[in-house]
């Protein structure tokens, strides 16, 4: 699995639960190291063992933990660069939702070997959407659920976001109901201001 993904998990755990928790989890997973490099690739088995170990160390279920990871990626100051890249998706939350179909391509444009599952947004009625997350990266639907929640806050939109089900082929579906597009002020996004 790409180092960026592993590194995201590392930052999330260290910033949220502390470096001690992180070290315990890496030991429990038998990684033999504690620092992931964002620009290297790692064996999928290492990431699987790490997530299992984290669940045990933190006493949390995987889905909830990964949702929190998604929220962290958008809302923590350390990951401001990622929030900005997501905000390039559109001027409003609805624009942003529609830009998700392009997200895997956008990610690959930035980092050529970063493979994200396909995403497909469907609009069922005004304000009611579903996002299908393709197979290939187990738990990605949970991370996306957290990202969608945090991005709604970022845009100042009021929305309910629920993970619905995983289909037989491993695809996950997220239901999005938009209650109000301009519920709060949201966070600023200046095109010309780069992160940090």
């Amino acid at each position: 699995m790409h180092g960026l993904i592993n590194r995201a998990i590392q930052s999330f755990v260290c910033d949220t639960y502390g470096a001690d928790c992180w070290r315990r989890a890496t030991r429990r997973a038998g990684l033999g190291f504690t620092q992931f490099e964002a620009m290297l690739n790692y064996d999928d088995g290492q990431s699987r063992r790490l997530l299992a170990a984290l669940g045990e160390v933190l006493g949390r279920d995987r889905a909830g933990m990964l949702e929190d990871l998604g929220t962290y990626l958008v809302s923590h100051p350390r990951t401001e660069a990622l929030r900005r890249l997501l905000r390039f998706g559109g001027v409003t939350y609805v624009d942003f939702l529609h830009s998700l179909d392009d997200l895997p391509d956008r990610a690959r444009l930035a980092v050529a070997d970063l493979q994200l599952p396909a995403l497909e947004l469907r609009e069922h009625a005004s304000g009611r959407f579903s996002l299908a997350c393709g197979p290939g990266l187990p738990g990605f639907g949970s991370v996306m659920t957290g990202i969608l929640r945090a991005m709604a806050d970022d845009y100042g939109a009021l929305a309910t976001i629920e993970r619905e089900r995983a289909s037989a082929d491993g695809a996950e579906v997220i239901a999005i109901t938009l209650v109000e597009t301009a519920f709060a002020a949201g966070r600023r996004f200046d095109l010309g201001a780069s992160a940090r």
Partner: peptide, 12 residues
Amino acid sequence: ELLYLVEAKTAA
């Protein structure tokens, strides 16, 4: 898209 790309590539 160009602005996005510049930021994304700078971060990478």
